[in-house]
């Protein structure tokens, strides 16, 4: 579904990484870890066509990302659910409207009436549906971001530090939701610093742990 092959990317002429390859297949579960500034978010952005690689090839659902037009990028993003680090909500919309936004922009707003109550219940935000993003706690916002990421029933879920601003209990709850999605056949890629979480989940899942450091992506092993 998502394939990166010998990809290089950087900013201002300084490469963050080069010769990097990654493949997300249906039902796969990947953790992406590494120190701050290593390029985890950049790598994720390549995966949902928010950035273009300087070199190498990024293939998204069998399409060359570099040849995608603006509408093509929009269509690809409808197949990839992203939980952004800052949640990326529209503060003038209620949580329910934010969660339904991917359906709204796809001119499928009518479907939200059927999916939304169930989804709100799944992430435990039924009571908060009418509230605005600034009125929610960090954990509630992260769960709402997850609900928005999955409302289009995407093939791939990408989460950037989904547990960064929440306590242990909430992070477990979020991860449980992601594992549920993975068991439904979705490919999941999570960027995180939280090694404790990785160790816990690795024991439960056949997850691959990738470490991005010094511009190289390597499979993490026993040191975790």
């Amino acid at each position: 579904m998502i394939e990166l092959e010998n990809v290089s990317c950087g900013f201002g002429g300084t490469p963050l990484f080069s010769g990097l390859s990654l493949s997300l297949t249906p039902g796969s579960f990947h953790f992406l870890t590494g120190p701050s500034g290593a390029g985890k978010t950049t790598l994720l952005r390549l995966c949902y066509a928010d950035l273009r690689a300087d070199q190498g090839q990024v293939r998204l659902f069998d399409q060359d990302a570099s040849s995608l037009g603006r509408d093509g990028v929009a269509m690809i993003r409808r197949r990839i659910g992203v939980v952004h680090q800052n949640c990326a909500f529209l503060d003038h919309l209620t949580i329910a409207e934010n969660i339904a936004l991917p359906l709204t922009v796809a001119d499928r707003a009518a479907e939200a009436a059927g999916n939304l109550p169930e989804l709100l219940a799944w992430v435990g935000l039924t009571a908060q549906a009418g509230q605005f993003p600034p009125e929610l706690s960090g954990g509630e916002r992260q769960r709402a971001a997850l609900a928005r990421a999955v409302i289009m029933s995407p093939d791939v879920i990408i989460a950037d530090e989904p547990t960064g601003n929440v306590d242990w209990e909430m992070s477990q709850r979020l991860l449980t939701l992601l594992v549920e999605l993975n068991r439904m056949g979705k490919a999941v890629l999570i960027a995180t610093h939280d090694l404790t979480m990785i160790r816990t989940m690795k024991a439960e899942l056949s997850a691959r742990v990738l470490r991005l450091k010094d511009g190289e992506l390597v499979q993490a092993g026993a040191e975790l």
């Binding site: 990028v73 929009a74 922009v105 001119d107």
Partner: peptide, 15 residues
């Protein structure tokens, strides 16, 4: 910022 978020969730320019 609003346009950026709309793009992230798959909005086309025409929308």
């Amino acid at each position: 910022q609003v346009i950026h978020v709309l793009r992230l969730v798959g909005a086309r320019d025409i929308y």
